[in-house]
Design a protein around this nucleic acid. Structure first.
Length: 846
RNA sequence: GCCGGGAUGGCGGAAUCGGUAGACGCAGUAGACUCAAAAUCUACCGCUGCAAGGCGUGCGGGUUCAAGUCCCGCUCCCGGCACCA
């Protein structure tokens, strides 16, 4: 409706919906009133709503909005449900990109410090975040590169070191020979360093690890957690629990060789053994004739990167080491080989090879002409090792297995064969039940500058010594020179490097490795509770009251690493005695990813990036928020549709109009209806109430389920109904006021600025965000009449409208008297009638 | 290969328990307003057919009065793990 300036009635003086004026106005007012500063000591029931904190990349992209805005709406909803909601924000501010920028600058002869860069970016992003209109309590901001934060990383590290949970061990790493640094697995793409493009080498280096494997079993237990099934499965698979047996084989020289197997029932079919190339026994067992070939194989495998050696289907390689072992169950003399398909990092690094029943062993045996002896035979069939074309891993009965012949056995957990063989092994002292996990200890060393220094000291006399607690933090020196090579400047910083042994006081050297940034994110939510706590990582009383976190939201990409580390850390903190619960997050919800218009990941090179700042400028923050929630199911993400946002903007405009503009029509509007005056209003009032209460009911359900898209669809339906029904008499009724109020309350979490403005304009006191969430009245949902579909033999043939309270008999007689239905009834005999209350009448004829 | 999720109009997507498939929005068509355009409003909008009707939720079967929904067998897509003994 175009406004003609002369004819603007008084009530319209507020003008058009203009997010550019109302949004800054309300953001300033909220801050002034400290509307979002949380009192943690309040008696109101608490709700800790956490969203994954971002890395300060320098600019908010649509992904940040998608993660944050719907989460904010859910948090606001909780608050309106009467909870004291903590909704904090911080920055995961250590990490490679800032350091890489410094290194790049060094290459170009310029100077950029990661700290300055990071803090500048944080400041900029915080300003961007504020434009979102989220209920973030900025007084609790946590910045992990702040020494007052990372000192507690060091403190936790020392606590773990004292408990034997942190240890230093030689470990294979991804080494980038060009950048002279270790890379995380995520930074290795198709076997090459993501930055240098160099082929990554496999290198053995002393590295710090945290013993997450101690908690493997406990980490498999998700009881009491409301987490997506998908994430639980991913973690479960990642931990990879396998039940089986550990069995001792002996070399002819009597050296025990431990193996792990999930198929002890196939022990009689073990015709050779395979050790991992780096297995410690290889050097001892290898015969002089085979030494040269074996050593060259070991050397080659050492240089094969982790990525290259993993490819399944890759042709098996290996070498015979000249030595033999004895199969403990049948005394058979079997050759010992090495091959890189056996991993030193899993099980015991050695296997018994049963080529008849394991595909990998089968391929290896075929290639090297080793014996294949089937010992599990499918019912009523025969297997011949010489003619088999693949390993048989199914069920069957044991054969060629001496006393066990005829015992049913096969793959998968408990079966008689496995049970009997293990019992026998145990009796003979040859082996025992064993559980093995795929999970490996967490390698936290990074040969990088921009991270938390590992607070350890090398002393010639005392060895490895932890820094004293009172000397924490071991601060990252600021005056460093970045090397174009990427080598950590800490290695050349004399002041940092040279220290004294905390134990004997003699000169000693500091560890120059820093911690993986996942360390920072493994406990940050505790810090929000008391961000300036100076004598502990967090306030214990508050942590006991406010954790575990009630709701955690973030991207699915963190399903394994961050979320598993966070659970591990929480269990350690519990075991240290600081908290009671071993789980960090009671409920977890994941958002999907917003893709470009072309359905591809947004990236500068594709040119499909959508800038939220531009969107806010054109449409307003409320529109951006609402559109991101409306685009589809939140956990699914989806492609950006530039026209879509105009749809929700239109909706917000119509909300503005329906609330602020006077009715344009009189009740008996176009004369099409036989309605008139009072009667019309009465029917309309009823319809209005039904629309309002239906919306309250559905939007509430949708918010509980994080189903933001359908919540907005319901609100659109309500607004449509209000616009359609609105008339000069209806707007004077209390029901109309109730409708306006409900609409604004339901919209408040989604479009906080707009609802706040309209709440005030429609004469209400206090912030809309401090109001109680409306409840629905079931009575308002009941209609006078109801339309019911009539099916004949499963096909809808007619529609009847009957009084809502009609019983079965009335429904049936109404159905039968319907003309079209009667036609079908005339064609045959009625055999059955089915009435689904309130929904349909079904007649079956024959 | 193993584990998990999914497939619904031109598009994004709705659809407690099996009960009128396609809510809501985008795009589109027609009309109103306008000198005109934009904006706004109103109507239409799965396919097919003049209509009555027929067909329709990846494919093939089945159960049921009734199937997007349940069962059996496939195809394709997406995600995780991937020589884990």
């Amino acid at each position: 409706m175009a406004e003609t300036s002369e004819a603007v009635p008084a009530a319209r003086a507020a003008g058009r919906y203009n997010p550019q004026t109302i949004e800054p106005k309300w953001q300033a007012r909220w801050q002034e009133q400290q509307l979002y500063t949380v009192n943690l000591e309040s008696d109101v029931p608490r709700f800790y709503f956490l969203t994954m904190y971002p890395y300060p990349s320098g600019n908010l992209h649509v992904g940040h909005w998608y993660a944050e805005a719907p989460a904010d709406a859910a948090a606001r909803y909780r608050r309106m449900r009467g909870y004291n909601v903590l909704f904090p924000m911080g920055f995961d501010s250590f990490g490679l990109p800032a350091e890489n920028a410094a290194i790049k600058a060094a290459k170009e002869g310029e100077e950029v410090h990661p700290a300055k860069l990071t803090y500048d970016r944080i400041e900029y992003m915080e300003r961007q975040f504020r434009k979102m209109g989220a209920m973030i309590d900025w007084t609790r901001k946590v910045v992990t590169c702040d020494p007052e934060y990372y000192r507690w990383n060091q403190w936790f590290f020392i606590k773990m070191y004292e408990r034997g949970l942190a240890y230093r061990k030689e470990s294979y790493v991804n080494w980038d020979p060009v950048d002279q640094t270790v890379l995380a697995n995520e930074q290795v793409i198709d076997g090459r360093g993501d930055r240098s493009g160099a082929l990554v080498e496999r290198r053995l280096m002393p590295q710090w690890h945290l013993k997450i494997t101690d908690y493997a079993e406990e980490l498999l237990d998700f009881s009491g957690l409301d987490w997506p099934e998908r994430v639980r499965l991913m973690q479960t698979n990642w931990i990879g629990r396998s039940e089986g047996a550990q069995v001792t084989f002996k070399s002819e020289q009597d050296d025990p060789i431990e193996i792990f197997t999930t198929r002890p029932d196939t022990l009689h079919g073990a015709t050779f053994m395979v050790l991992a190339p780096e297995h410690p026994l290889v050097a001892k067992l290898v015969t002089s004739e085979r030494r040269q070939a074996v050593e060259s194989y070991v050397a080659r495998s050492e240089h094969t990167s982790e990525i290259d050696r993993q490819a399944e289907g890759r042709e098996k390689t290996g070498e015979f080491i000249g030595a033999y072992a004895t199969n403990p169950v049948n005394g058979k003399r079997i050759p010992i080989w090495i091959a890189d398909y056996v991993l030193m990092t899993y099980g015991t690094g050695a296997i018994m090879a049963v080529p008849a029943h394991d595909q990998r062993d089968f391929e290896f045996a075929r290639k090297f002409g080793l014996e294949i002896v089937p010992v599990i035979v499918p019912e009523g069939a025969e297997l011949d090792g010489a003619t088999m074309t693949e390993a048989y891993s199914g069920d069957g009965v044991m054969a060629r297995s001496g006393r066990f012949d005829g015992t049913p056995a096969g793959k998968g957990g408990e079966n008689e064969g496995i049970t009997r063989v293990v019992a026998w092994l145990q009796e003979q002292g040859l082996g025992s039940r064993k559980i093995t996990y795929r999970l490996r200890d967490w390698l936290i060393s990074r040969q990088r500058y921009w991270g938390t220094p590992i607070p350890m000291i090398f002393c010639e006399a005392c060895g490895l010594v932890a820094e004293r607690e009172e000397n924490l933090p071991v601060e990252l020196p600021q005056d460093v020179a970045f090397m174009p090579t990427g080598e950590s400047p800490l290695k050349h910083h004399q002041e940092f490097l040279n220290t004294h042994c905390p134990s004997c006081g003699e000169p000693a050297t500091r560890e120059t490795d820093t911690m993986d940034t996942f360390m920072d994110s493994s406990w940050y939510w505790f810090r929000y509770l008391s961000p300036s706590e100076s004598d502990a990582p967090f306030n214990r009383e508050r942590a006991k009251r406010w954790t575990p976190v009630d709701m955690y939201t973030g991207g699915i990409e963190h399903a394994i690493l961050h979320l598993l580390y966070a659970r591990f850390f929480t269990k350690v903190i519990r075991d240290i005695g600081l908290i009671d619960s071993g789980e960090p997050f009671l409920r977890l919800r994941n958002q999907g990813m917003i893709l470009g218009e072309d359905n591809e990941k947004m990236s500068k090179s594709r040119g499909n990036v959508v800038d939220p700042d531009d969107l806010v400028e054109s449409y307003g923050a409320d529109s951006v928020r609402a559109y991101l929630m409306f685009i589809g199911p939140w956990d699914q993400g989806g492609p950006w549709n530039p026209k879509g946002i105009e749809g929700v903007t239109r909706f917000l405009n119509r909300v503005w109009s329906v609330v602020t503009e006077p009715a344009q029509k009189e009740p008996p509007q176009d004369g099409t209806a036989e309605r008139d005056g009072q009667a019309d209003t009465k029917a309309n009032i009823k319809e209005l109430r039904r629309a309002v209460h239906h919306a309250i009911k559905e939007v509430t359900i949708d918010f509980e389920a994080f189903s933001f898209n359908t919540a907005i669809a319901e609100l659109m339906t309500l607004q449509n109904a209000m616009s359609r029904l609105k008339s000069s008499t209806l707007t004077t009724t209390p029901e109309w006021s109730e409708a306006v109020e409900s609409l604004l309350l339901l919209l408040a979490p989604i479009a906080p600025h707009l609802s706040e403005e309209l709440w005030e304009q429609s004469g209400h006191e206090g912030s809309v965000h401090l109001q109680e969430w409306p409840g629905h009245d079931d009575a308002a949902l009941v209609a006078d009449t109801v339309s019911i579909a009539v099916q004949v033999n499963g096909k809808v043939r007619a529609q009847i409208t009957v009084p809502a309270e009609s019983g079965r008999d009335e429904l049936l007689s109404a159905a039968r008297s319907e003309q079209n239905v009667a036609r079908y009834l005339a064609q045959g005999e009625l055999v059955r009638e089915i009435v689904v209350p309130g929904r349909l009448v079904n007649l079956v004829i024959k």
